[in-house]
Design a protein around this nucleic acid. Structure first.
Length: 167
DNA sequence: TTATTGATTGTTCCG
DNA sequence: CGGAACAATCAATAA
C-alpha cells in the first residue's frame, strides 16, 4: 500500500535521513539542516577537545582497523561513533541468519545478504532502526559532553591494565 | 600469537 | 552538495 509511495520517496536524494516517519516530508530538507546544526555543536566540542588525534588519515579504509585496537586503553574513554541503523539490523539479522545458515561463518556473506534484504525492506520497517540510531546518536552526544566534563575535571585517570600474558 | 583483512550500509564532517 | 572515512562483527590468514 504505502509501499508505492515510499518507493517513490525512496530516492536517495530525499532519503538522506527523515528519521521519524511521523514527520511529514515537509521538513525533509530542513530536518537535515537542523540536525547538522546539532552536529555543529558537537563539532566544536570534538575539535576543541581532541587535541592530539594522531595523524591517522588513511586514504583507504585499511587503516580503519588499525585504530580499532592496539592495546591502547587511552582512547577507551573517548566515545566512538555509534553504530548506524544498518548495524543494528545486522545484529538482529545475523542471529537469524546463522540459525538458518549455520554453515556460513563469515559475516561477509551475511553482509551481502543483509544488504540485499535491507534494500527490500520498506521504509516503515527501516524507520524502526533509524529511530534507534537517532536515539543512539543523542546518547553519543551526551556521552561526549560527559567525556569532556570528565576530562576537564581530571584527565589524570588512566586505567593501566597491561595484563595480556596468558597461555 | 597477534594483527589484519574482508563486506554491508548509515552517519558524520570538511571544503 | 559531494566525497572520504569510519562504525561492528567474526572467521580466516599473514607474518
Amino acid at each position: 500500500m504505502a509501499k508505492k509511495a515510499s518507493k517513490s520517496k525512496n530516492d536517495r536524494s530525499s532519503s538522506t535521513s527523515v528519521a521519524s516517519a511521523k514527520s511529514p516530508s515537509t521538513t525533509s530538507n530542513h530536518q537535515m539542516v537542523l540536525r547538522m546544526k546539532s552536529s555543529d555543536k558537537m563539532k566544536k566540542i570534538a575539535q576543541g577537545s581532541v587535541v592530539s588525534e594522531k595523524e591517522t588519515r588513511p586514504k583507504s579504509r585499511l587503516k580503519s582497523k588499525l585504530q580499532q585496537k592496539k592495546k591502547t586503553k587511552v582512547d577507551a574513554k573517548m566515545p566512538k561513533k555509534p553504530p548506524t541503523a544498518f548495524f543494528y539490523f545486522l545484529e538482529d539479522f545475523r542471529k537469524e541468519f546463522q540459525e538458518q545458515n549455520p554453515d556460513i561463518k563469515s559475516m561477509r556473506d551475511i553482509g551481502k545478504a543483509c544488504g540485499e534484504k535491507w534494500k527490500t525492506m520498506t521504509y516503515e520497517e527501516k524507520v524502526k532502526y533509524y529511530d534507534i540510531a537517532t536515539e543512539k546518536r543523542a546518547e553519543f552526544d551526551r556521552a561526549m559532553a560527559e567525556y569532556n566534563k570528565r576530562k576537564e575535571s581530571g584527565e589524570d585517570e588512566e586505567t593501566e591494565d597491561d595484563s595480556d600474558y596468558e597461555e
